[in-house]
Design a protein around this nucleic acid. Structure first.
Length: 376
RNA sequence: GUGGGUGUAGCUCAGAUGGUUAGAGUACCAGGUUGUGGCCCUGGGGGUCGAGGGUUCGAAUCCCUUCAUCCACC
């Protein structure tokens, strides 16, 4: 259940209640695809960096260790020892980004596993069943994430199929929730808007899926290669068509700058691999821009990554030490860098919420956009 | 001591028969990365071709000397 606490222009400060706790929005969800944050963080680390929602992936957990295994072990919360809210991505994106030899039909998608090449079929019912077995709090719809650019007619037909899949997802999840063995019977389904970069397709599809009265809606298929300005324009078209009283999730976005701009345009939920991936590559966020620890100039730099940061890494370690760990390929280097970047993201969101609470988000955005021009 | 092999980028090596400004991989330096394959992509700097001499219009390449190193045999 979503409660709108305050608005400033289109920007919203909200609260969403799940079976595993309350989420203060706008929020960044921390991506733990395979029931782990890459870089060596566990659920307790997530608590320490201020994570509210953990995000795992249907496709990956279905392949390994298998969703039935996780259900038998009590569901994903029990399995990974995270007692807060979990959102599971449907696997739709991975089927299109990762798997090969895929065949799309009305029933669903047949594809070859990226792990061992075995043939797997996934459609709306399969995705819902898997997510039910995982027992996440929010299950995402099984959709087709169309590559960009794509022809208008293809995107249009794809949107229609994604809509039919959504209707099937809704029915399938309701049935899954009836099962005695379902680890989380309060699981809900969020729909996903598609339509590429075509405003009319985006709006039509959004209006169509809004009628299903789902408890949440996402905008998918953005940040897939188009310029940020195009993404913002699409948001300006689509967000006004999204239900006011439901959470809005911009999938896979983005940079700190993207997030602030999307909050400004009315988005509540985000997730992105960027902070963790950048961390693994030595690109760390600071309030004055992004730094690349691989740069030789940090070899003897004994200052913390960000003087203004309150994370445990910045309290203890120097840039020179982190750089050494990365160069020496010590796993500790990955862990510490990921801890810092995710702390940065989660606390950026806390700052955004505070600015909204105090009615000064417009000023906050101005202040940050000046800094974030520094390519962060 | 004798015979043989090898010396080309920080490292591992390509560079028939001599022919523009000597290449690759890796490392290094620097960009990129948006519902995660610790992946990958894109640029860049860097070499007295062990040293000295000779042959030649022209030598990493052929000849001589020398140094280093490895192997085998006294």
């Amino acid at each position: 259940m979503f409660t709108l606490l305050k608005t400033e222009g289109r920007a919203r400060r909200g609260r969403y209640i799940t079976p595993h706790g309350t989420i203060e929005t706008p929020v960044f969800m921390n991506v733990g695809t395979q029931a782990a944050i890459k870089g060596g963080l566990d659920a307790f680390d997530l608590k320490a960096i201020g994570c509210q929602v953990e995000l795992s992936n249907t496709y990956h957990l279905h392949l390994l260790p298998g969703d039935e295994v996780i259900r038998t072990l009590g569901g994903l919360h029990q399995f990974m020892q995270w007692d807060g809210p979990i959102l599971t991505d449907s696997g739709g994106f991975q089927v299109f980004s990762l798997a090969s030899l895929r065949q799309i039909k009305e029933e669903g998608v047949t594809f070859a596993s990226h792990l061992d090449g075995r043939r797997i079929f996934m459609g709306p019912e399969e995705s819902m069943r898997i997510q039910s077995n995982l027992g996440s709090d929010i299950a995402m719809a099984f959709d087709e994430c169309v590559e960009n650019p794509a022809p208008y007619d293809y995107v249009k037909a794809s949107c229609q199929r994604t809509y039919r899949w959504l209707v099937r997802c809704q029915k399938a999840l309701a049935e899954c929730n009836q099962r005695d063995e379902a680890p989380n019977k309060g699981q809900v389904l969020w729909g996903i808007n598609q339509g590429g970069t075509f405003p009319d397709l985006r709006k039509n599809h959004m209006e169509q899926i809004a009628e299903l009265d789902l408890p949440g809606y996402a905008v998918g298929g953005l940040a897939v290669g188009e310029p940020a300005e195009v993404m913002y324009e699409i948001l300006e078209e689509v967000v006004p068509v999204m239900p006011q009283n439901k959470p809005r999730y911009l999938m896979g976005v983005g940079t700190p700058s993207n997030i602030i701009e999307a909050v400004w345009r009315g988005i509540d939920f985000f997730d992105c691999v960027l902070p963790a991936r950048n961390a693994r590559h030595g690109h760390l966020y600071t309030k004055n821009g992004r730094i690349n620890l691989n740069n030789a100039k940090y070899q003897t730099d004994d200052t913390p990554v960000d003087e203004a940061c309150g994370c445990s890494v910045c309290q203890r370690y120097s840039r020179a030490y982190l750089r050494h760990l990365l160069k020496a390929e010590e796993v500790l280097g990955l862990r510490l860098c990921v801890l810092h970047n995710l702390w940065f993201y989660n606390h950026l969101m806390a700052d955004i919420r505070q600015a909204l609470d105090q009615g000064r988000f417009a000023a906050f955005r101005e202040e940050w956009s000046a800094r974030l021009d520094l390519r962060i």
